[in-house]
Deep mutational scan, measured.
Amino acid sequence: DLRKKIVDLHKSGSSLGAISKRLKVPRSSVQTIVRKYK
């Protein structure tokens, strides 16, 4: 699940930009998912 991957990467200390590059999703999507998770 993409959300879980993003949250896991964020927990392990990756920046939003790094996560978005790695998973090839827009940075804004990463930000939204991380914000919802918090």
Rank of each mutant, 00 (worst) to 15 (best):
D1P: 09
D1H: 11
D1Q: 11
D1G: 11
L2F: 07
R3Q: 10
R3K: 10
R3F: 14
R3W: 15
R3V: 14
R3T: 11
K4G: 06
K4E: 08
K4S: 09
K4Y: 08
K4V: 07
K4P: 03
K4R: 12
K5A: 12
K5E: 07
K5W: 11
K5G: 05
K5I: 13
I6H: 00
I6V: 11
I6N: 00
V7T: 06
V7M: 13
V7K: 04
V7R: 06
D8W: 13
D8S: 12
D8V: 09
D8P: 01
D8A: 14
L9Q: 04
L9I: 01
L9E: 01
H10A: 07
H10E: 02
H10M: 10
H10W: 15
H10D: 01
K11H: 07
K11S: 07
K11D: 06
S12N: 11
G13T: 01
G13I: 03
G13S: 02
G13H: 02
G13M: 03
G13W: 00
S14Y: 15
S14I: 15
S14R: 10
S15M: 02
S15D: 03
L16E: 05
G17F: 04
G17Q: 11
G17T: 15
G17R: 15
A18M: 10
A18V: 08
A18W: 07
I19A: 01
S20P: 00
S20A: 14
K21I: 09
K21F: 02
K21A: 08
K21N: 08
K21L: 06
R22Q: 15
R22P: 00
R22N: 11
R22V: 11
R22F: 11
R22K: 13
L23Q: 02
L23W: 00
L23R: 01
L23F: 05
K24T: 05
K24S: 10
K24I: 05
K24P: 02
K24D: 09
V25R: 02
V25E: 04
V25I: 13
P26V: 05
P26I: 05
P26D: 07
P26S: 13
P26Q: 07
R27V: 13
R27D: 04
R27T: 06
S28Q: 12
S28G: 10
S28L: 09
S28V: 08
S29A: 13
S29W: 15
S29H: 14
V30T: 01
V30R: 03
Q31L: 06
Q31F: 02
Q31V: 14
T32N: 14
T32E: 14
T32P: 05
T32Q: 14
I33T: 07
I33F: 00
I33H: 05
I33N: 04
I33A: 08
V34M: 05
V34D: 03
V34T: 04
R35N: 11
R35F: 04
R35H: 11
R35P: 05
K36T: 07
K36F: 08
K36Q: 12
Y37P: 05
Y37F: 10
Y37I: 11
Y37D: 06
K38V: 10
K38W: 10
K38Y: 13
